[in-house]
Design a protein around this nucleic acid. Structure first.
Length: 469
RNA sequence: CGGGGCGUAGCUCAGCCUGGUAGAGUGCCUGCUUUGGGAGCAGGAUGUCGGAGGUUCGAAUCCUCUCGCCCCGACCA
């Protein structure tokens, strides 16, 4: 969502109210939006994020663990994706796009065609060739690299893509948090030797800290098992949420450190390493690895934090695990041929939508962090049948859109209660409430969605200034 | 893949035990009245009762098979 240079489209065709300005990038009338909200919770949804996503009209289940994204949900997904993209770019990674469907050949070379078992969705094409819907992309990216880079002069390199993947989970659950089809960012680093590879790993470590902080989350890096991907340098990033699947023990210093407040120079490996060293020196473990005695020894009582969390990212350094069997060799300055050193770095983009809701909601609905909210402001017209009230709303709507403030305008002829409930449910950070009662006194009401119950009556001009500022 | 549960209106669910030809709330449509926290009254539309077979004069209901979905466990971004 761009902040400047936004497109302005004047509607002239049928279907739009005559003379109305349509600013698709920034604004939407609820009367025209496809946002099928539900008053009651569909029975298949157990956990809060799944319930809220269905009720808010963000997604619909297509089949077990597979979802369609409706406009509201897709907007959030794209915002998360964009933040992830910006931080990958900032860390010096280049975006590519690999296919969802892959040939089995490379997977046989790496030996994972058998290892992956039934989780891998196997397909045959019309020529009876063995294909698969990619559960991940190490093999393919290694082949791409192998064909395009031959020398140490081509290193280091970092590539990433954001693509749908499929893992045929035995038991998909928790809505988009544990779907079979999911959107994932995966990045891959290519370096000449272990030391350079370790630096690449550390860059991603910092990029992850920044990414999750920008998403409005507290994410804690924890030493992790390497799982079927293999290797020995690995961290999981766990987002704190009361409803998280695993119990987490950590030093409170994690929660208080502001990574975004620190300027990062990715070109300065010493400063990157400092950040990594700080975070890896603090105690942080999931219940599986938790050692109460070690916890008490490492962390003073007042700094001990116990909570729950959801895994949203995982980074690995795995050296030559794929470059060796797949023959991704580079020539060294001494004219030797050595397998390239690799790491891979995943973020579950679609999972994050659910993860953020798990971390950010209350009894009334979602409470979006501003960075990923589908719209910044919900403009509520309390009396759509009242000409003056509607005129005031229409004016504010146009002004907000022109100012580049993303606004969803509830212009429906519904009861006030229904509108408030819908706004709370979809969780936009600001509610701008306009009713005849306030207008008599020249004021509108501006409410902050969420904990701090910030709420003020002020003139429309002041509200506009506050939101556009 | 082991254990459990559920499929009846868009959504939540009743009816099933004890067979007689389908209901409620909510949502949707129309009209009127309302309007600051999911409004009121009146009228209206909506179902291959998940599917297939069987038993029966007759099946949402009983029997068999099957498909789908959910929960717990093992597994995982």
């Amino acid at each position: 969502m761009r902040k400047a240079g936004f497109p302005v489209i004047f509607a002239t065709g049928a279907g739009w109210p005559a003379g109305d300005v349509q600013l698709h990038e920034f604004s939407m009338r609820l009367s025209q939006y496809f946002m099928p909200t539900l008053k009651e919770t569909p029975k298949e949804a157990e956990i809060v994020s799944h319930r809220l996503m269905l009720r808010a009209g963000m997604v619909r289940q297509a089949s077990a663990g597979i979802y369609s994204w409706l406009p509201l949900g897709y907007r959030v997904l794209r915002k998360i994706e964009q933040i992830v993209r910006e931080e990958q770019d900032a860390a010096g990674y280049q975006e590519v796009l690999m296919p969802t469907i892959q040939s089995a050949d490379l997977w046989k070379q790496s030996g994972r065609y058998d290892d992956y078992g039934k989780e891998m969705l196997r397909i045959k094409d019309r020529h009876e060739r063995e294909m698969l819907y990619g559960p991940t992309n190490e093999e393919l990216i290694t082949e791409i690299f192998r064909n395009g880079a031959k020398s140490y002069r081509d290193l280091p390199k970092g590539l990433y893509h954001i693509q749908w993947k499929f893992r045929d989970e035995v038991r998909p659950r928790f809505g988009v948090m544990r779907g079979r089809e999911f959107l994932m960012k995966d990045a891959y680093s290519f370096d000449l030797d272990f030391e350079a590879g370790r630096r690449a790993y550390q860059k991603q470590f910092v990029a992850y800290l920044r990414t999750f902080a920008r998403l409005g989350l507290k994410a804690i890096p924890m030493e992790a098992d390497t799982g079927p991907i293999g290797g020995n340098l690995s961290h999981e990033f766990i987002v704190l949420a009361e409803t998280g699947e695993s119990e987490v023990f950590c030093d409170r210093n994690f929660l208080e450190h502001d990574v975004l407040g620190t300027a990062i120079d990715y070109g300065d490996s010493a400063s990157v390493e400092n950040v990594v060293n700080y975070f890896t020196s603090l105690y942080a473990r999931t219940d599986e690895k938790h050692d109460q005695a070690a916890f008490e020894k490492a962390v003073p009582a007042q700094r001990r934090y116990t909570g729950r969390g959801i895994e949203v990212g995982h980074i690995f350094f795995f050296g030559t695990k794929y470059s060796e069997p797949l023959g991704a060799l580079v020539t060294t300055p001494d004219d030797d041929a050595v397998p390239v050193q690799m790491g891979s770095y995943g973020i579950g983009v679609s999972r994050l939508v659910g993860g953020i809701i798990e971390a950010c909601h209350d009894d009334h609905g979602i409470v979006w962090p501003e960075a990923v909210a589908p719209y910044k402001v919900g403009l509520v017209n309390l009396r759509a049948a009242d000409a003056d009230c509607t005129a005031a709303c229409d004016k504010l709507y146009g002004q907000l859109a022109q100012a580049g403030v993303e606004v969803l305008y509830d212009d429906r002829d519904e009861s006030a209660g229904a509108k408030f409930a819908a706004m709370d449910l979809i969780g936009l950070p600001w509610q701008l409430v306009v009713g005849p009662r306030g207008l008599e006194n020249g004021v509108v009401e501006l409410k902050r969605r969420g904990g701090d119950t910030e709420r003020a009556e002020l003139s429309p001009e002041a509200a506009l200034a506050r939101l556009a500022g």
